[in-house]
Design a protein around this nucleic acid. Sequence first.
DNA 1: TCACACACCTCAAGCGCTTGAACACAAGCA
DNA 2: TGCTTGTGTTCAAGCGCTTGAGGTGTGTGA
Lengths: 143, 143
Amino acid sequence: MDVWTIRDVARRCGLSEPTLRYYEDIGLIGPIGRDASGHRQYDAADLDLIGALSCLRATGVSIGDMRTYKANLANREETAAEQRDLLLRHAERIEAEIVAQHARLGYLRAKAAVWDARDHADGVAEAEAWQAVKEAAQHLGFH
Amino acid sequence: MDVWTIRDVARRCGLSEPTLRYYEDIGLIGPIGRDASGHRQYDAADLDLIGALSCLRATGVSIGDMRTYKANLANREETAAEQRDLLLRHAERIEAEIVAQHARLGYLRAKAAVWDARDHADGVAEAEAWQAVKEAAQHLGFH
DNA sequence: TCACACACCTCAAGCGCTTGAACACAAGCA
DNA sequence: TGCTTGTGTTCAAGCGCTTGAGGTGTGTGA
């Protein structure tokens, strides 16, 4: 098995089929080969690139940065440090994002507790839950 | 101070000014009061709602779900359980997202190590780093 | 052999914002 | 008094996809 359908690639790389077509449209990948009836056939090299881009995308990297990354692949030696820095910058973004997600999780759970107390018409629990909401909101940086 | 400008609200609630205008356009919030020269003036009730919606948004809740949430505020007693469940469903999504972010972080760092090794023309380190990339990619569920 | 499912195709529109252009008003300074 | 600065306004276009409509080609079962 040395070629894959768009469906295979979507599953393996975690991108949707329309996204794969879109990336080809804008020249971020491909051009991808076609079979006799016009269906796309992805090869191993396509998969490699798409896998890497998919990770970048999942971390919030812009299409512009993905283009840079791809372009840099051509002349590895000169751009290695730049590639490393691009990846590390986005690693930092992810770290910050994880912290933010924890804060949001706390807020959501606290707020759910408020509604749960309301559902059980438990005024005491509701008051306590409100307190937790306020604290959670502080971590979110607003309210 | 019992009214706020759009700028204040954007800062306090973590939404951009255009987003606040957009939410008003589509009827998710407001209509917001205006001063003599047409500038928006948000009051405490607006802030309450916007703060809650902002959290929902930050956790990936769709505008449709936000509308539901807002509509349910009107008849609290009947919908308390629904509100709680909406929030808890999204808390679960966040938990999954945090796990995914950790996987992406591992991948980015591993890949950065590969480029760092290349930058230093260190073949041994590069080979080790590739191994780490492969393991990290496994956690991402593809490659 | 004909019907049907199914996986793919293209093209257009929609979504949830963001960005940019062009303008209005209010306060502070030369 | 006019000029600049700052903060707001509206409207239109762009971004990065997603969704949906409508069509094509291949394979299987009756």
